[in-house]
Design a protein around this nucleic acid. Structure first.
Length: 107
DNA sequence: ACTTTGACTTGCA
DNA sequence: ATGCAAGCCAAAG
């Protein structure tokens, strides 16, 4: 497990309640140019492991779509969780203009 | 050790 | 506006 993973976990865990962020922003926050795929891998590893303390449902792609929803038990649980937190949806994507949260740069 | 793929993003055609 | 290709890091075959 690399340090980048821990950094990803830390950032994802830092997402405020009712907010969402994107893979690209997380990757950019951790200093990687386009490590968005790493974020996806990290979350996948997280989902497969016991790191359920990480709100992976608050991580969406740049369009606000729940790309990872299909990796949950059911594609609906992710959206329901977000809606339960007060996140509004525009059709199939999160209203990023209202709920997008940009992580701070981590040195 | 090398190749392929993935919960992504950006750029060019 | 839509489609294909490249770039990035890490894990699995």
């Amino acid at each position: 497990m690399s340090d980048r993973y821990e950094l990803i976990y830390d950032i994802v865990r830092s997402i405020p309640h009712g907010k969402v962020t994107t893979y690209g922003h997380i990757a950019a926050a951790m200093g990687v140019r386009s490590g968005a795929r790493l974020v996806g891998w990290a979350l996948n590893a997280v989902a497969h492991q016991d790191r359920i303390d990480i709100p992976c449902h608050r991580v969406v792609n740049r369009l606000g779509e729940l790309s990872g929803s299909m990796h949950f038990e059911t594609p609906f649980v992710m959206r329901e969780r977000l809606e339960a937190e007060g996140v509004t949806f525009l059709n199939r994507a999160v209203d990023l203009s209202r709920h997008l949260w940009v992580p701070e740069l981590a040195p």
